[in-house]
């Protein structure tokens, strides 16, 4: 198991340059590959070793940046924008739809580890507000029907 982590980290470090400047891209990539949108303590320790920074620095970065997480999240990270433009056109309704469809409150992950419902600040999709980001895709101009579709498509895999 340890070897797997080592290889994974070594690969990411090799891709982004083996120095502390590569910390952010390395962590983003490893988080992406975790399948759970998080950086585990084990991974963080290995990254610190590989990039020759203190474990403390890795954790500082993981906890500072909103895109990174030290705790596991769902396979699909659903982030509803609650910023200015989306608030003006009523992101609340969108949030309620997702809550109801998923049966989750903000910050919760479902039992299967499939969905995490979260809110986020501006994702630069104000022209299609209210907008939602699911992993790296952005969806806007949503209706309840489309929300249902987005979820069922992902449930189906």
């Amino acid at each position: 198991m340890e070897g797997v982590v080592q290889n994974l980290v070594a690969e990411a470090c090799a891709k982004h340059g083996n120095d502390s400047s590569a910390l952010l891209p390395v962590l983003l990539e490893l988080q992406e590959r975790s399948g759970k949108h998080y950086v585990s303590r084990e991974i963080a320790e290995e990254v610190a070793r590989a990039l020759e920074v203190t474990p403390g620095q890795v954790f500082e970065v993981v906890t500072y940046f909103a895109a990174l997480s030290d705790k596991p999240r769902g396979k699909y990270l659903i982030q509803i924008c609650e910023s200015t433009a989306c608030s003006v056109v009523g992101y609340n309704a969108l949030l309620d739809w997702f809550k109801e469809e998923l049966g989750l409150e903000v910050g919760q992950t479902d039992a299967d580890g499939l969905f995490t419902l979260a809110t986020t600040h501006c994702i630069g999709a104000c022209d299609v507000a209210p907008a939602v980001r699911i992993n790296n895709e952005v969806f806007g101009n949503l209706t309840r029907e489309k929300v249902r579709e987005l979820i069922s498509e992902r449930r189906a895999g």
């Binding site: 502390s20 400047s21 910390l23 891209p25 983003l28 990039l51 970065v61 895109a67 990174l68």
Partner: peptide, 23 residues
Amino acid sequence: FSGAGAYVCGEGFALCESLEGKP
């Protein structure tokens, strides 16, 4: 280079810090 979700990184120094692998 991708940021990681931090508004303040639009500020020059914060941007540089994050480029260096720091908060």
